[in-house]
């Protein structure tokens, strides 16, 4: 069946695929995950704020999350790439547009987009911690920020760890969409080699295999981590 295929092309291009492509993909995933969880947790806290004076925050965070979740990711990446130089320039008051490379544009886009999804996960996580825990924090004299930081969020994070990591596996796969701004991630690198050497089937098969293996291993790790970090009740 594989007669006529040339699998040597994979071996020859391995250093390029991994040193250029995979490094881009993994770095982008890691940065967007970190930024997305931090930003998303902030959004979740805003969405769960109580009291009349904080109502605008609740509305703002809700609107942001719903907007991001209603747009296709490809569009957001595409638009953001062209808009960031203008917005950035406007923000710092420069006459010219500022230069943002494809990589940083992608990092910012994915962080902002994924934050909407991480927000909903963390919101469920915060709600999974009983109100009594918050009361206990307050009763000891801890203020809102300390109660969240030391009592509620650590538990919310542990409870939601499997879902957070599953979302990160999805993020890892979604980073391949940066092809729309011609960034060279792992899939982009594979595509370049495929087109140069006319070995499309081999390269795309290999790329699929790599994504499969990484995602599978990550999913298995989630299960093990969960067992180790779970809170004893």
């Amino acid at each position: 069946m594989f007669a006529g295929f040339d699998f040597d092309v994979i071996e020859r291009s391995l250093p390029y695929l991994f040193r250029e492509g995979m490094v881009f993909t993994v770095t982008l995933t890691a940065l967007a995950m970190t930024g997305g969880i931090v930003f998303g947790t902030g959004l979740a806290m805003m969405r769960l704020a109580t009291g009349v004076s904080l109502a605008p925050l609740v509305w703002l965070a809700g609107a942001y999350v719903n907007l991001m979740r209603a747009l296709p990711l490809v569009l957001v990446i595409f638009w953001f790439y062209f808009l960031v130089p203008w917005i950035g320039g406007w923000l710092i008051g420069a006459r010219q547009t500022i230069q943002v490379g494809a990589f940083w544009s992608a990092v910012i886009t994915f962080t902002m987009f994924e934050a909407a999804y991480y927000c909903e996960i963390m919101r469920a996580g915060i709600q999974s911690v009983s109100r009594g825990q918050q009361s206990a924090g307050y009763a000891l004299g801890l203020n809102y920020w300390r109660t969240m930081g030391h009592v509620v969020l650590p538990q919310a994070f542990r409870n939601m760890l499997p879902v957070l990591l599953t979302q990160t596996v999805i993020l890892f796969q979604d980073t391949s969409l940066v092809y729309v701004i011609s960034a060279t991630d792992f899939l982009g690198a594979a595509a370049k080699v495929a087109n140069r050497d006319h070995r499309l089937v081999e390269m795309y098969l290999f790329a699929a295999l790599v994504y499969l293996v990484v995602s599978y291993v990550a999913s298995r790790t989630v299960g093990r981590l969960q067992a180790r970090l779970a809170v004893i009740r």
Binding site: G132, S135, A136, Y138, A139, R158
Partner: peptide, 21 residues
């Protein structure tokens, strides 16, 4: 300053509310 006031008044809850982590 409610946090300060609360730090001077101890409270014990029905469901203990120890921090499980």
């Amino acid at each position: 300053d409610l946090p300060k006031l609360r730090s001077r008044v101890g409270m014990v809850f029905q469901h203990f509310e120890l921090f499980p982590h």
